[in-house]
Simulated scan of single mutants.
Amino acid sequence: MEIKMFYRTQRDVAAAVNQLVDAYWDEKIIEQKLIDSIKDIHKNNQEKLMKNNDFTKVVQQQCGKRRLVIVERILEMN
Rank of each mutant, 00 (worst) to 15 (best):
M50R: 08
F55Y: 01
M50N: 11
A14G: 05
Q46K: 10
Q62C: 07
K57F: 10
V69L: 09
A14P: 05
L75N: 12
V69A: 10
Y7W: 06
K65V: 06
Q60D: 04
K43E: 10
N78S: 12
E2N: 06
M50V: 03
Q60L: 15
E47M: 15
Q46R: 09
K43V: 14
N45S: 08
R67W: 05
Q60P: 05
F6G: 08
G64C: 01
E76S: 14
E2R: 10
V58H: 06
R11S: 14
V58W: 01
N44Y: 01
I38H: 00
K43G: 05
V59I: 03
E27S: 09
Q46L: 14
D40N: 14
D54I: 05
R73C: 08
R73W: 08
K51C: 13
L34Y: 01
N78R: 13
V17K: 00
F6N: 13
R67Y: 06
Y24F: 06
A16R: 08
R73V: 06
N44M: 03
M5A: 11
I30S: 13
L20M: 03
D36M: 07
K39G: 02
K33H: 11
M50C: 07
C63N: 00
A15E: 12
Q10K: 10
L68Y: 00
V71A: 00
I3G: 03
A23R: 09
K28T: 13
D22I: 09
V17Q: 03
E31N: 12
S37C: 03
V69C: 12
G64D: 02
I3M: 05
Q32P: 14
V21K: 02
A16K: 10
E2K: 10
I74A: 04
L75A: 09
V58D: 04
K48A: 03
E31L: 13
Y24K: 09
N52A: 15
R66P: 09
E2F: 14
M50G: 07
I41H: 06
E72W: 08
K48N: 02
M1H: 12
K39R: 03
M1G: 12
L75T: 11
K57E: 13
I35P: 02
D36R: 12
Q62V: 12
I29F: 10
K48I: 07
W25E: 06
N52E: 14
Q32W: 11
E31K: 15
L34E: 04
R11A: 11
Q46E: 13
D54A: 11
M5C: 10
F6E: 10
K48R: 04
I41K: 02
D54C: 11
V59E: 06
K48E: 08
T9R: 05
I30E: 15
R73F: 10
L20E: 04
K43P: 06
E47W: 15
I41L: 03
E72M: 14
V13A: 05
Q32I: 14
K33C: 14
N53Q: 14
K28A: 05
I35L: 04
H42S: 09
K65D: 06
C63E: 01
D22C: 06
Y24M: 07
M1E: 15
E27C: 11
R8F: 10
F55V: 04
K43W: 08
I35M: 06
N18I: 02
L49S: 07
R66M: 15
Q32N: 15
V69W: 04
E47T: 15
L68F: 00
R67L: 01
D40V: 09
R67Q: 03
